[in-house]
Nucleic acid binder design. Structure first.
Length: 156
DNA sequence: TAGGCCATCTGGTCCT
DNA sequence: AGGACCAGATGGCCTA
C-alpha cells in the first residue's frame, strides 16, 4: 500500500478560486474491481486512469465563494482539507491491510470498502465457529468460496 | 446511460 | 484555538 507518500502536500491545492484545478491530482485511492464478478477481477486501479487523464476531483461548488473568505480562514480550511485527506488515506491504508489478510476468490479480486468490512466480520465469525468445533488448525482456514456459503447474519 | 464506488471538499461538533 | 471525526454534497471513473 501507499500511505501518504502517494500524494505530495502540494497536491492539496486550494480550490477556492477556481472551478477546475488541473494541478491537483485525483485522490490516491483504491478501487477497481469488485468481489464476485469475474469481470471485475484484474482491473487497473482507478487512480491511475484519473491521473493519466490529469483529471481532478476537485470542486463541489458549494462553498466556492471566491475570495470572499479571509486569508486566514482560507488557509485554515486548506489545512483542514489536507488533514482530512490524510486521515482518509490512513483509513484506506488500514482497509487495505485488512483486505490483505482476507481470503478472496478469485485471489486478485478486490473487495469494496463495505464488502471488506462485512467480509471481515463474516470471516471472524466463521473462524470462531471453526475453532469452537475443535476444528482448529488447518480446518479453520476457510476458503473464500466457503465463506460465501456459511454466512452469518451480516450479509448484504 | 444508469448505477455503483470512490476521492475530495466542506461545515458542524466534540475534544484537547 | 486548533485538530479529529463525521456526514452530506459533488463530480469523476468504470461496468453492465
Amino acid at each position: 500500500m501507499a500511505p501518504q507518500s502517494d500524494r505530495s502536500p502540494d497536491e492539496g491545492q486550494p480550490y477556492f478560486g477556481g472551478a477546475e484545478d488541473p494541478s491537483s491530482a485525483a485522490g490516491g485511492g483504491s478501487a477497481g474491481s469488485r468481489g464476485a464478478s469475474p469481470a471485475r477481477t484484474a482491473l487497473a486501479p482507478r487512480e491511475t486512469a484519473a491521473r493519466r487523464k490529469g483529471k481532478t476531483r476537485r470542486g463541489r461548488g458549494k462553498a466556492r465563494n471566491e475570495g470572499l473568505l479571509s486569508k486566514q480562514k482560507r488557509s485554515r480550511r486548506m489545512k483542514a482539507n489536507d488533514r482530512e485527506r490524510n486521515r482518509m488515506h490512513h483509513l484506506n491504508s488500514a482497509l487495505d491491510a485488512l483486505r490483505s489478510v482476507l481470503p478472496t476468490f478469485p485471489d486478485d479480486a478486490k473487495l469494496t470498502k463495505i464488502e471488506t468490512l462485512r467480509f471481515a466480520h463474516n470471516y471472524i465469525w466463521a473462524r470462531e465457529r471453526g475453532l469452537e468445533r475443535g476444528g482448529g488448525g488447518e480446518s479453520g482456514q476457510l476458503k473464500a468460496q466457503e465463506m460465501g456459503r456459511a454466512l452469518p447474519p451480516l450479509t448484504r
